[in-house]
Design a protein around this nucleic acid. Structure first.
Lengths: 150, 150
DNA sequence: ATGGGTGCAAACTGTTTGCAATCTG
DNA sequence: CAGATTGCAAACAGTTTGCACCCAT
């Protein structure tokens, strides 16, 4: 089951006074099509779209990305590459975290129920309404550390 | 006890063929002087330095920041403001995490031993040498959510 | 003295914004 | 039809880089 269908999209947009446009529809499709665990940058997304024959401006991509994050459909990731990445947002319990190698940027995902619990607990005790919970581990992967590192 | 003294700095730098310069010294001082939990952007740091009469280029600030992160003295934080923040790195057990309001950017810190345990465990099982472990919670603070949010 | 480090200014990258034209509800 | 949305190009912000001079070791 996908997290968001086209219908949900239209309903959600309209409910807030926004409109369903082909661009927004296509962007959501792309996110639903990529394998779970893969995340796209704005540029990636734009390339994918134009390569598949779509005519869309980069700024529209950025605007849509923001909108979808704001609406809770997408999750914004700050990994170590100097630009943001996005992926479909999923319910807390299916949410995963990232372990990234600071040398080669290889990223491993993992899930860990405890973390989400802790996150929820902390947010609640501070009176925050929690939107996202990301554990990011920075380290050196076996290949990069291999022998050569001190 | 501070995490890094001037002597440590010189020793560490020299050990790797780098040199101790007044700029690097001053930058470390600043980080040691700010209250725990406060984090500075490159620009913040540069302002602090120039305002205290120091003559230092912004690029040197960036270069030093990178060097110190690379050497493990500083920790690089990706909060929600569109630019990176830095703080003194501390041993795992003293490390803290962040809860940030996506509306007003107010940030709350908290420590949680469990998280660091989980992080270490995950990194180990993937064969990564762990450098940093950051749980970042995004949410809406009581003031911003106050009544108006659904 | 030697080669790492610095400041400056110019280059770059990712992202945002103003605006006229276009399309959705 | 009104107002939301788009594409384009120009503007931006933060960060990086080339280079000549300078200073720790």
């Amino acid at each position: 089951m996908a997290a968001y269908s086209e219908d949900d999209l239209k309903a959600d947009l309209n409910a807030r006074g926004y409109r369903l446009t082909p661009q927004r529809q296509r962007i959501l499709e792309i996110f639903r099509a990529i394998p779970q665990g893969k995340h796209l940058s704005a540029e990636d997304l734009h390339n994918t779209l134009t390569q598949s024959g779509e005519r869309i401006g980069l700024s529209t991509v950025y605007r849509t990305l923001h909108l979808m994050v704001y609406m809770g459909m997408l999750r914004e990731l700050e990994l170590a590459e100097g630009h943001k990445h996005y992926e479909l947002n999923r319910p807390l319990r299916e949410r995963h975290h990232h372990l990234v190698c600071v040398y080669c940027n290889k990223t491993i995902e993992f899930s860990e129920n405890q973390i989400d619990q802790v996150g929820k607990k902390q947010a609640n005790s501070a009176g925050y309404y929690i939107l996202d919970c990301q554990l990011t581990l920075y380290g050196i992967c076996p290949e990069c550390g291999d022998g050569s590192a001190s």
